[in-house]
Amino acid sequence: MTDTATLTSQQIIRKKAAGEPVNADDAPMVHRHVITVLLENSIGALNRVTNMFSARGFNLESVSVGETDRDRVSRLTLVTTGNDRIIAQVLQQLNNLVDTLVVDDVTNQEYVERELCLIKVSYEAETRPALMDIVEIFRGNVINITPETMTFEVTGPTSKINAFIGMIKPHGINELARSGRVAMRRHLAFEA
């Protein structure tokens, strides 16, 4: 870290523009961003997107992919982290891919995001009511049950999923699957 005293005003402007810390004790300016991508579903298209992240050293926390209402067009929701410079790069590099139709960083927009979580736990007669309470509080469902195990399904924003997993954890988790986030801008019909 360079001492501020030795930086020219121009260097400080550049550091701020990049979202880099200027002083040694500044907090790192890394943010989490949610980006949605409409992708033409040609051969290797998804691979090109994920490969770009590793080839350029960007973080990729989660990816979810699915079909859309349009033929041969998939929708991706990507979650990545970085400072302002890196996030700008991620967006530009995504845009540069020939297969990407629309790249939208929804992070600072009005948007909804959801994640699906499947979780399998072992239970006994005395732990079952407690587990069921948790599932009910989180508005989850039991989607499979055997004399030894139950599988729950919970949907919600990532923070809710994290909280749900945190509550189940003390009971012992057998298996856990998360879908990764899917996100979409809100349509603000009643804004002035």
Binding site: L7, T8, Q10, Q11, R85, Q89, Q92, Q93, N95
Partner: peptide, 18 residues
């Protein structure tokens, strides 16, 4: 270039401020 302001003309958006 510690003193310089920078103008950057380029055709590749990903090159700007990379």
């Amino acid at each position: 270039a510690p003193q310089a302001k920078i103008i950057h003309i380029d055709i590749d958006p990903a090159c700007i401020s990379k």
